[in-house]
Design a protein around this nucleic acid. Structure first.
Lengths: 347, 347
DNA sequence: CTGAAAGCGCTTACAG
DNA sequence: CTGAAAGCGCTTACAG
């Protein structure tokens, strides 16, 4: 018997379900049942069909499945976040979930700095008849009320990563930024630091807000023993450099600085090198995220590991496990403090 | 008359082409003609249809178009490159092209370090009946002969970014790594450097090979006036640190080092800071790529701007402009040297 | 220049 | 437990 798989490799039409049915000597519907793991399939039928599928090198046609059925086998992830590291981790986590479930992943990027009407129109084009089974929304997009309204009006499923508001409005995944920031405060305190700097992030990012609140409020409970000085940042390396120069002019200098993300912490390290301050002897520095750059500085950065990939994986799974009428679930994933070389005892 | 767009926003079924045809009082086929910009459409017909589309908030169904026609309105990008920056730039560039042409972008990642059979099986699953109009392949994946054979056997269109071999086997996009590396050599020479270090990249990456060849061969033409010392790297920050320690032990020390990518150059800067060498006074450092990290170090990095986004945009366009039986085209995009603060005159 | 018919490759009721 | 029919929403020949 000629090997049909080889015939296919030799560039004829890809085999269809009809070909599989003929080859296995069963009906179209039976092939469909096997492929979709429907109940009440005998082992014998399954074996016949599976062998025909293998022999022909058959793969179901996505477009046809999508058009005929209720599943689309695609989810999307929509970004408006400028950080390439963060974005890649989200994509990687979501992609891993898609591979497990034989789904495809679509990528979309929008600019939420422009006029709101343009953003909504663009989003509408992205989600309309795109045949996706849902979208993952990341900050700050997932905190835009009009965006959520659009998704709901269009009846499009979505899950959110680290939304600031209404965690149960849709499936969502978090980490506890508040608790993590408190842990950083405790670490610095336990090492003897009593004069501590903080560099904040942009207000519209939920994580920035929570990290600041957790850190500042916790240190305030230790007053007057602990003194806090604060500088504004925007999560960029450059703003970390600037904040460091500002905070390190204060006399006496703080002995430790906590930056609300790693990029700014890297900026602080760079500023110290220019000011001939030795990290961590002269200044302890702590970041947040455990992003790529945390290991690309010397000394390496003590930071909070934010489980971004795991969060994206979980958010994707919330979309893939479409359980009938279940209530939206809020998932909180574990973080942990990673001690590297940028933090030491006060002296 | 009730506004149908609002009715749609109120969660009924999305409008179909049939609804548009009825609303405009024309046939299905006429709507299709307008949507697909077919020739021989009167302005009047177009106006009627366009207004019906706007009124109903109609968007064509991707799955149906794909199933019925020859276009799928999706392209994909397949990675096996571990660098998140590089990957994000590729995705951004390809995405921009997709937005212009109203296409969607699919994302896929494979592991080409595992066994070759597993890789091919995974790729087969990615491209089989996935209804994509083509895939962008990046290094080192685009230099894997068996991968290209698979794509061709399956009759799947693909374009390659910076392939090392057979640039005309498929549409492809390059930059001139060889010429760029020579320019770096000329820059360092013109600044008076006569004892120069080079840190190489992994052999299986085409770019690493070409950059080394351009740099080393060009400097060799200047011998014996110029002396070159070389260390192996793997494009990672850590390998840059290690290479710096190795090269800077040589007596007399080289006065400049060229690293084949920015991550390694950043590692060299960090190593210098630990060794209390001042950049660029004690050592000039030049990178390659103009990646994200080039501006996240102090001093900022002199480097070659590799137009990765533009290359990905062009590669996507090669897939979107499916011109009948045109020959595959090889595109070479411009690079340029970016002088920042890490390079200075020899002294 | 416009339209009625057939069909893309599947899944979903429905019948046996 | 299995199968024949209808139909998802479009595009592609083909006819006028």
């Amino acid at each position: 018997m000629a090997n049909n798989k080889d015939r296919f490799l030799g560039k004829s039409q890809p085999p269809t379900m009809r070909d599989v049915a003929e080859c296995a000597g069963v009906s179209l519907k039976s092939v469909s049942r096997v492929i979709n793991n429907e109940p009440h399939v005998t082992a014998r039928l399954r074996a016949k069909v599976d062998s025909a599928i293998a022999q022909l090198g058959y793969a179901p046609d996505m477009a046809a499945r999508s058009l005929a059925g209720a599943h689309n086998y695609v989810i999307g992830v929509i970004f408006d976040n400028p950080s390439p590291h963060y974005t890649m981790k989200i994509v990687s986590g979501a992609y891993a979930a898609c591979v497990e479930r034989h789904y495809h992943l679509r990528f979309d990027h929008v600019d939420s700095n422009g006029p709101s009407e343009a953003l909504l129109e663009r989003l509408d084009a992205i989600v309309s008849n795109g045949r996706s089974d849902g979208f993952i929304l990341t900050p700050p997009l997932c905190d835009n009320a009009r965006v959520l309204e659009l998704m709901e009006a269009r009846d499009i499923r979505y899950s959110r990563i680290a939304p600031l508001h209404d965690p149960l409005r849709s499936p969502s995944v978090h980490m506890d930024d508040l608790a993590a920031a408190k842990q950083v405060a405790d670490l610095l305190y336990s090492l003897g630091h009593r004069h501590i700097g903080f560099v904040s992030g942009p207000d519209q990012l939920s994580a920035a807000t929570l990290r600041r609140r957790g850190f500042i409020e916790h240190l305030k409970t230790m007053q007057p023993e602990v003194k806090v000085v604060e500088a504004k940042g925007d999560f960029s390396f450059g703003s970390g450099v600037a904040a460091a120069r500002e905070l390190l002019c204060v006399q006496p200098r703080p002995s430790a600085i906590f930056a609300a993300n790693d990029d700014m912490a890297a900026g602080i390290i760079a500023a110290c090198q220019q000011m001939r301050l030795v990290v961590p002897d002269d200044l302890s520095i702590c970041g947040f995220d455990d992003s790529w750059i945390a290991k690309l500085v010397l000394p390496t950065l003590t930071t909070v590991h934010q489980p971004v990939e795991a969060m994206a994986h979980a958010a994707a799974m919330q979309l893939l496990n479409r359980g009938g009428s279940e209530r939206p679930r809020q998932l909180v994933l574990d973080h942990h403090l990673i001690r590297r070389d940028s933090v030491g005892p006060a002296r």
